[in-house]
C-alpha cells in the first residue's frame, strides 16, 4: 500500500505536467509536423504583422496590454515595435541590436552580451516557429481542428527558473504562429497574439536600422 502511495505521489508531477491542454489531442507523428514546419519556414523570406501583448500578473490579477507591429526579413533582421501605450523599438540587424526608447537610440553588439544573444535567438525562432529544433527545450505537439499547439519546456536549470513552458499556437492552414504564450513558474504569463500577417512582401532594409 505504501509503495502504491509513493508511486502515485512521485508520478503526480509528471501526470500534471504532461496534461493534454483542453480541446487538444497529442500528435503522434511528430516527424511529419516538423517536416511541414521546415518546408514552410524555407519559403518565407519576410513577415509583417501586428501584435497584441498581454502580461498577466497573477498576484495582482492585473493585465498589462501593449500593442505593436513587427517586421522580419531573412536572414536575421527583425524590427519589434510597441506603439501603445508606450513607444519602444527593438531592431536586430544581423549582429547589431538597436533599442529606441524615449527618443534615444542605443546600439549594441549582439555577440558582446549573453542576454542579447538569447533575446535574439528567442525572437527570431519565435516569429519563425523554429524552436522545435532547439535542443534546450523538450517539445510536445498537440492539435485540434484548426491549430497545432507546440509546447516547449526548458531543460536547462537557468531557464527553468523563470520559464515553465512556452506555448506556440500554429494555424493548420499556413503553419503560421498565431499566438505565443510564455508561462513562468509562478503562472504569470506573457501572451502575444499576431494579427494581419503578411508573408513575403518587400520590406525596406532601412527599417532594421534605428537612428
Amino acid at each position: 500500500m505504501r509503495k502504491i502511495v509513493l508511486v502515485v505521489l512521485l508520478s503526480l508531477p509528471v501526470v500534471l505536467f504532461s496534461q493534454v491542454p483542453k480541446g487538444f489531442s497529442l500528435v503522434k507523428d511528430t516527424a511529419a509536423f516538423k517536416q511541414k514546419m521546415d518546408t514552410q519556414s524555407k519559403i518565407i523570406n519576410s513577415i509583417e504583422s501586428d501584435f497584441s501583448q498581454e502580461k498577466y500578473l497573477s498576484v495582482m490579477s492585473e493585465k498589462i496590454i501593449s500593442k505593436g507591429h513587427f517586421c522580419f526579413k531573412k536572414a536575421n533582421m527583425l524590427r519589434w515595435e510597441y506603439f501603445d501605450p508606450y513607444k519602444y523599438i527593438i531592431a536586430i540587424n544581423k549582429d547589431k541590436m538597436y533599442i529606441k526608447d524615449n527618443g534615444k537610440v542605443n546600439k549594441y553588439d549582439i555577440n558582446s552580451n549573453k542576454m542579447f544573444k538569447s533575446i535574439n535567438e528567442m525572437m527570431m525562432n519565435t516569429v519563425q516557429g523554429n524552436l522545435l529544433n532547439n535542443k534546450d527545450y523538450k517539445a510536445r505537439i498537440y492539435e485540434n481542428e484548426k491549430q497545432y499547439l507546440l509546447e516547449l519546456s526548458p531543460l536547462q536549470k537557468g531557464a527553468k527558473d523563470f520559464l515553465k513552458v512556452i506555448q506556440l499556437y500554429i494555424d493548420k492552414a499556413d503553419y503560421a504562429v498565431v499566438q505565443v504564450k510564455m508561462i513562468e513558474p509562478s503562472d504569470d504569463y506573457t501572451s502575444i497574439e499576431f494579427t494581419n500577417r503578411k508573408n513575403n512582401q518587400s520590406i525596406d532594409e532601412t527599417k532594421f536600422i534605428l537612428k
Binding site: K55, M60, E62, I64, F162, T190
Partner: peptide, 23 residues
C-alpha cells in the same frame, strides 16, 4: 514598466517588468 497596486489597506505590491514582459 512599473506596476503599483494597493492590495488592501497598508499592503502594496510593486512589480517591474521589461517592455517585452520579463519580470
Amino acid at each position: 514598466l512599473l506596476l503599483t497596486k494597493q492590495m488592501s489597506s497598508g499592503d502594496y505590491r510593486i512589480i517591474f517588468t521589461t517592455e517585452l514582459g520579463m519580470k
